[in-house]
Design a protein around this nucleic acid. Sequence first.
DNA 1: CGAACGACCTGTTCGC
DNA 2: TGCGAACAGGTCGTTC
Length: 259
Amino acid sequence: MPELPEVETLRRQLEQIIVGKRIRGIEVMDSKIATPPSVSGQMVSSVHRRGKGLEVVLDSGMALHLHLRMSGKLLWQSSNTISLAHTRLVISFEEGCIILIDPRRFATLSYNTATSLEDLPGFPLRRSDLPRILSFASKRRIPIKAFLLDQRIISGIGNIYACEILHEAAVDPFKRTCDLSTSQWQRIIKVSAPILKMAIRARGTTVSDWRDLFGRKGEYQRQLKVYAHEGEPCPRCGSQIVRERISGRGTYYCASCQK
DNA sequence: CGAACGACCTGTTCGC
DNA sequence: TGCGAACAGGTCGTTC
């Protein structure tokens, strides 16, 4: 569920709350999640984002890596501990605790050495990234929409923002990746960073149940042009927005101005 | 190597 | 109201 803007929202909020604080304990309530070896007493030195993943670096040089996948949410609870449904993990501090809520149980936790040095490709996407992207893209025949979701190439874009980026760039989501022109790629790169930045500023997109660390909805859903707007007029040309399936994912676009 | 598809899970919504 | 099917913000493994 959370994509780059949502995870970055959590990262910034976590940074404010837990950096410099000592972990009191970790409790795992889901057999799918392995309890990390004692992190109690370790202090959080920084919080990073790698694509859609979060990395909580500890003063020992180890790090907790958390990926929320489809339905994971993090919530900060100060003192008054209300037990919420689908709680899978609790990381407690003296001042409160972070809880992981994850109905579908896809979220993952791992405990490794801190790896923030090795950056994933991601945003802000720069013009200088174009040659590297084109070298991958020229060999791929999958629809561009599916290519944007491949985290090995560009990490952080998910289904909502892929739809929004392609609409803003006026590119047909079904177009084969290898058939995109350079100018279409330039448009994709040009529109991507502003869209993701605006979404971060809005604390993400709440189309159903996304919440930030403090349980608040995001605001970017009000600026969506196509995602979840099936049947409504395209804000650019007025044609009806349609929804079709591309490699298993619901894809919203305007067939008349995305060519 | 690339592409297609099922698997991993549970909850909600939609159509009959 | 009930019931099954379709669907959901993401990745990973297998097969062809």
